[in-house]
């Protein structure tokens, strides 16, 4: 297992956002974290990325306890946030160099990794372009290249397709599915069922509680995933 969450609970003052959530995301597998708005997905991402501190429960990344060894655990994670993190007035390359440096990579090794990550996403020839000139799809691709730069074991994506058109959304979703073939563990949060493939691991989060977990095609049991999702969460999706 490369990502393990055990008995995780979290409160915002009086409001309980997560209640006793436990799941494993397996190595080399795409795990979809599905839930309607307000289900607790963003809180879970906040805890996984240590923007919030875990009070109750344990998070392990590649066998490292996030609470006890936060820096070692963060070094193993690649994160694509819902919000854009790149500086629009800097070039793709400048943005990636900055991120590489945050992970202690500089000089030749950083340049090689930047080239490799841009190659993977077919963006090498755009390395010197400013982000501001790019469309939403290419900006998201750059976010993904950034998150993969330090070769993480676990890739976390918090609703990464928000605001993208259909073709960009499909391209990014497919690309991240392909990444699991190299052994990458992926946790992808979404409220859009068409981003989940039948063989993906699926976790359904609703009102802060983990309602279902299993392989998508087993869980949906002949129904369309959308119908299954609506039946489990009501009309809130």
């Amino acid at each position: 297992m490369t990502l393990r969450v055990s008995n995780l609970s979290f409160n915002y003052q009086a409001k309980q956002a997560l209640k006793d959530v436990s799941f494993d995301a397996e190595k080399g597998r795409f795990t979809a974290l599905l839930g309607p708005n307000g289900a607790g997905k963003s809180t879970l991402f906040g805890l996984l990325t240590r923007l919030l501190t875990v009070n109750n429960g344990v998070i392990e990344v590649a066998g490292i306890d996030l609470r006890q060894h936060p820096l070692a655990a963060l070094a193993k994670m690649g994160i694509v946030f819902q919000q854009p993190t790149l500086d629009l007035d800097l070039s793709v390359q400048q943005n990636l160099r900055y991120f590489a440096a945050l992970h202690g990579l500089s000089g030749k090794s950083a340049e090689m990794r930047i080239e490799a990550s841009l190659d993977r996403l077919g963006m090498r020839e755009r390395a010197k372009e400013k982000l501001r000139k790019m469309n939403g799809g290419h900006r998201r691709r750059t976010e993904l290249a950034r998150a993969l730069l330090h070769e993480p074991s676990v890739l976390l994506l918090d609703e990464p397709t928000v605001g993208l058109d259909a073709s960009s959304r499909t391209a990014i979703t497919d690309h991240v599915h392909q990444l699991t073939a190299d052994g990458l563990t992926v946790l992808w949060s979404t409220h859009l069922t068409d981003e989940v493939h039948p063989d993906d691991a699926l976790i359904l989060l609703h009102q802060g509680v983990l309602k279902e977990a299993g392989t998508a095609k087993d869980l949906q049991n002949g129904q369309s995933l959308q119908d299954w999702f609506l039946s489990k969460t009501g009309a809130e999706a």
């Binding site: 240590r50 820096l71 946030f81 919000q83 993190t85 945050l102």
Partner: peptide
């Protein structure tokens, strides 16, 4: 912070 760059900074593996 309202954008994501502060999140990016604070999730870097440094104190």
């Amino acid at each position: 912070r309202e954008m994501g760059s502060m999140r990016l900074l604070l999730t870097a593996p440094l104190p």
